[in-house]
Design a binder for these strands. Structure first.
Length: 104
DNA sequence: CTAATGACCATTA
DNA sequence: ATAATGGCCATTA
């Protein structure tokens, strides 16, 4: 586990249910303002997603709450459809394939 | 060491 | 509004 990955997971872990954060924002909070793409790389191999069974809620990393800057959901290892389903279940609203409302 | 790989971003047309 | 483009950067092969 690299220190960058630890920072990323530590940040993503505290995104509350029903809210989303962009990859770029995670990168800034991690102290690497231009590493948004690398954030995606880390989350791509997230070992503690919501699809891993047998984990306490506090020990999961809700990487499905990290989305693109343009409001589209972005990638998800189990499939983008799953990501959208999870977000909708948490109350996140979509308007023609984009997240409704503002975020940063 | 170098090169390739992305769950991306901002700008431009 | 969309699409293409160049850049970005931590990881991995």
């Amino acid at each position: 586990m690299t220190s960058f990955a630890q920072k990323v997971y530590g940040i993503v872990r505290r995104i509350p249910k029903g809210r989303v954060m962009t990859y770029a924002r995670v990168a800034r909070l991690a102290g690497r303002p231009r590493a948004s793409r690398a954030v995606g790389n880390v989350l791509h191999r997230n070992p503690r997603s919501f699809f891993v069974r047998g984990l306490a809620p506090s020990e999961r990393v809700p990487c499905h709450r990290v989305v693109k800057s343009d409001g589209r959901p972005g990638g998800f290892a189990p499939g983008t459809g799953k990501k959208i389903a999870l977000l909708k279940k948490e109350g996140v609203l979509f308007r023609n394939g984009r997240i409704a409302g503002k975020f940063s």
